[in-house]
């Protein structure tokens, strides 16, 4: 299963100034609520030989909020980012599931709906930009799994997270509607990465069930229920912590865990960390630099024995 061709072998770098591998689109959350996801992603990937260059002057992708408010705008906003990526001449790497789905939506439009596509192109023209067909958009999780490969990860591991029980939670928008992942409902890429760093992956059937996302703002009651179910399964399966790859999931499961406990009379103390934090830690990066302290539910006690 594992990808043996390493990044270095696939794309040998010159001795001098290295051209980055990807333009990195962080998205708004990775600059605010999910800064630890940003830092752990960039640093881990650097250790694994992937260089990311942040897209200059990127703008908000619009997320699903814009798709719900203004159709043309919901294509035009992310299209600006894609146009600038195309100008840079590199594929794009994205870490946030919501940005990933929104940017991919523009790609889908580029391939299908010709009349609407020209409308979007017209808006870009108004700001002096153009988008020429789809842009290669990759999720950082998939880059790590596919381009780096499990063998390379195993080689680079400094701290094997032996005995750490992790529930891999992908969220909904990473593998759906249809992206590069192995299955839209039961992807396995994160499972494999976590195993490669020595962790014990617990069975987690809700791995792509929805956390409610931004509906936490408008439909809090029912969204708390969804998150309670997600926490419950992780706990029942014996997970020490939940690994995620989306800022929205992390926020809902972590920041609202206290509220869930008081609402449902539960006593969850499940740390919710980005898989890249665990990856970086396993690769020997500094625990602090990985931002474990930024979570509401502390993860420290589970990591102590590996430090």
């Amino acid at each position: 299963m594992s990808e043996t061709k390493t990044k270095d072998a696939a794309r040998p770098k010159g001795a001098g100034e290295a051209k980055p591998d990807f333009v990195f689109f962080p998205g708004c959350s990775l600059h605010s609520t999910a800064r630890e996801y940003h830092d752990s992603t960039v640093q881990s990937m650097a250790v694994l030989g992937i260089t990311l260059e942040e897209l200059d002057d990127w703008n908000c992708c619009g997320a699903t909020a814009l798709s719900s408010a203004d159709s043309l705008l919901s294509y035009a906003l992310p299209a600006r980012n894609l146009a600038m990526t195309q100008e840079r001449g590199l594929p794009m790497a994205v870490a946030c599931n919501s940005c990933f789905v929104t940017l991919n939506r523009v790609n889908a439009l580029m391939e299908t709906d010709a009349p609407y596509r020209s409308k979007v192109e017209e808006t870009l023209k108004a700001i002096g930009r153009r988008l020429d067909g789809p842009v290669e958009i990759r999720h950082t999780l998939h880059i790590i799994y596919h381009d780096v490969g499990l063998d390379r990860i195993r080689e680079k591991v400094k701290r094997r997270l032996e005995g750490l029980k992790v529930a891999p939670y992908y969220g909904c928008q990473i593998a759906r509607p249809r992206h590069e992942f192995s299955d839209p409902e039961f992807p396995t890429e994160m499972d494999d990465i976590l195993e490669a760093i020595g962790a014990e992956v617990v069975r987690y059937d809700r791995k792509t069930k929805c956390c409610g996302g931004a509906l936490m703002t408008t439909k809090e009651d029912v969204v708390l229920e969804l998150n309670e179910q997600l926490l419950r399964e992780a706990q029942v399966r014996g997970a020490d912590l939940i690994a995620v790859c989306c800022p929205m999931c992390q926020m809902n499961l972590d920041a609202y865990q206290g509220k869930i406990n008081s609402r449902f009379g539960t006593d969850y103390k499940l740390p919710v960390v980005y898989f890249t934090q665990l990856l970086g830690f396993a690769l020997g990066l500094d625990e602090k630099a990985m931002g474990f302290g930024r979570g509401f539910v502390p993860a420290g006690k589970h990591l102590k024995k590996y430090a």
Partner: peptide
């Protein structure tokens, strides 16, 4: 529609390919 969280579970399972 105000309850839709855009999780696309319906979309990938629709036998007629309706998003």
């Amino acid at each position: 529609m105000w309850y839709c969280a855009s999780c696309y579970a319906c979309t990938v399972r629709c036998p007629q390919g309706i998003s």
